[in-house]
């Protein structure tokens, strides 16, 4: 077995611990390896998004450890976490969350700028990524002029631009029609297979679950079932 990319030890998250405690994630142990294509599923309130946020360093667990490539991110300061996310994690959000005043190209390029990548390398990376998601002809279009599916593909390109260790996608297909969702999943599956990129989704979408090679079901913040890691 490979060294896990992500190692989650005994992670719990309780909201409002001092007033009315609400447990969201309860004593979760999970390992994710490089190249996984994993879906976190479960009913609303089961803790999928919270767990995804904890893995992404957006939310801190009440207890437990999240070790990513040997770094316990629960011990990092806020600024260290921001830098860690910048270089190691790609995010795809349900509502795309592109910067509306930037073009598709600039949205993808933005993260490379934050990383301090030189212009020539930025241009090539953006061009390659936009081409790989089928938006080579929409580079200079602003998000408002793109369909939902196209916007989400730009968001995927942005997530991939920084060459992260893995991509966390929170309900990425929730706002897409069937065709756009299938198209997006095809692109992500291709990237997973060709670049051995690790994807972790939180989803309700049967289409995503169907394509996932590992499905982790959460119930009341606990892991109810796990089909186990299957690599590319």
């Amino acid at each position: 077995m490979d060294t896990p990319v992500i190692d989650i030890h005994n992670v719990s998250k309780i909201y409002n611990p001092d007033t009315i405690p609400v447990p969201a994630v309860n004593n979760v142990h999970l390992h994710f390896e490089r190249g996984e294509f994993t879906a976190l599923v479960g009913p609303s309130g089961s803790g999928k998004t919270t767990l995804l946020n904890i893995i992404g360093g957006l939310d801190a667990p009440s207890e437990g450890q999240v070790i990513i490539n040997g770094t316990d991110i629960t011990r990092l300061s806020a600024n260290q976490l921001i830098r860690f996310r910048l270089h190691n994690i790609g995010f795809v959000f349900q509502s795309y969350n592109l910067i509306p005043v930037l073009t598709a190209r600039e949205n993808v390029e933005f993260i490379l700028l934050l990383q301090g990548v030189p212009k020539a390398r930025r241009d090539k990376r953006v061009h390659d990524l936009m081409a790989s998601v089928g938006l080579g002809d929409k580079m200079d279009v602003r998000p408002a002029q793109l369909s939902g599916g196209q916007q989400q593909r730009v968001a995927v390109s942005r997530a991939l631009a920084s060459k992260p260790q893995f991509i966390l996608a929170d309900e990425p297909t929730a706002n897409l029609d069937s065709k756009a969702a299938t198209n997006l999943l095809d692109i992500m599956a291709k990237l997973n297979q060709e670049e051995e990129m690790t994807f972790i989704f939180s989803t309700h979408d049967a289409r995503v679950i169907e394509r996932a090679r590992r499905v982790i079901t959460l119930e009341d913040g606990r892991v109810a079932s796990d089909t186990g890691a299957v690599k590319v």
Binding site: L58, R85, L86, H87, L114, A159
Partner: peptide, 11 residues
């Protein structure tokens, strides 16, 4: 979103 993807506080 900007904070999530790695935009530092100073930026």
């Amino acid at each position: 979103m900007l904070m999530s993807i790695g935009m530092t506080k100073i930026r």
